[in-house]
Amino acid sequence: MNVENTSKQSWWTRIAHPGQFVAWSRRLLVPLWIATAALFVLGLWLAFFASPEDYQMGDTVRIMYVHVPTAWLSQFVYGVMSVSAIGTLVWRHPMADVSMKAAAPLGATFTALALYTGALWGRPTWGTFWEWDGRMTSTLVLLLIYFGIVALWRAFDDQLRAARIVAVFTLVGAVNIPIIKFSVDWWATLHQPASVFRLDGPTMPGSILTPLFVMVFAFTALFLTLHLIGMHTEVRRRRVMSLERRLAQRGAA
């Protein structure tokens, strides 16, 4: 009943109420676009003009500057979806549903891009577009899970009911992903004892790490921007659907 309580409540409604959420978060879009563009310009400049070629990989190291960020996003987006799924199941937060739905196609796209750039990097480095090594294989399985989640969303007519069910499946997938990762690694080493080329963190010189980090931030900013737009679109879509339903009901009455 005190002041603190009411201010907390208004903070909560600002996040939870779809209309209010769109109203205040629209102002974030322009700064997000600017940050994304600036980071990409800086990152690409660093990647092509300010970084040397790797002594081992030569110029193909430049593919890493788009491969690592997309691979990072493929997992980060699943993390966002899992947190949103918990929000849906525990607090029945309406914006968590929307966030989950908007993130799924983005995650699928970035995972596909990670595989695409990985294949183009593997061809000059390993001599083949596709190698059944642990990391690429588990990324492929992750892509299949994303496709399953997108298909599940599309299968439901009632999106409000769909949210809780997709949330359950998303969390089952989240529990499963480490198990898949472990089993695929076990399988890959069993069938392929020869060690593949590894790019481990500490061995990378700073001249490669700087553009890599800038590109990771650039891609993350891009995801956040597109995710916010997707959430706004989803809120509008639900509003359109409820208005159309009401219109149809009035027409029938």
Binding site: V141, L144, G148, F156, R161, I165, I180, S183, V184, W186
Partner: peptide, 29 residues
């Protein structure tokens, strides 16, 4: 997950297949 979807019979295998890969790997192993 698919019990209320009318065409759920098609979607359930697509959802479960990637999750069951560890069982396949260790089962064959």
């Amino acid at each position: 997950v698919t019990v209320t979807i009318r065409r759920g019979g098609l979607i359930a295998p697509v959802l479960i297949l990637p999750l069951a890969i560890p069982l396949l790997i260790f089962g064959v192993g």
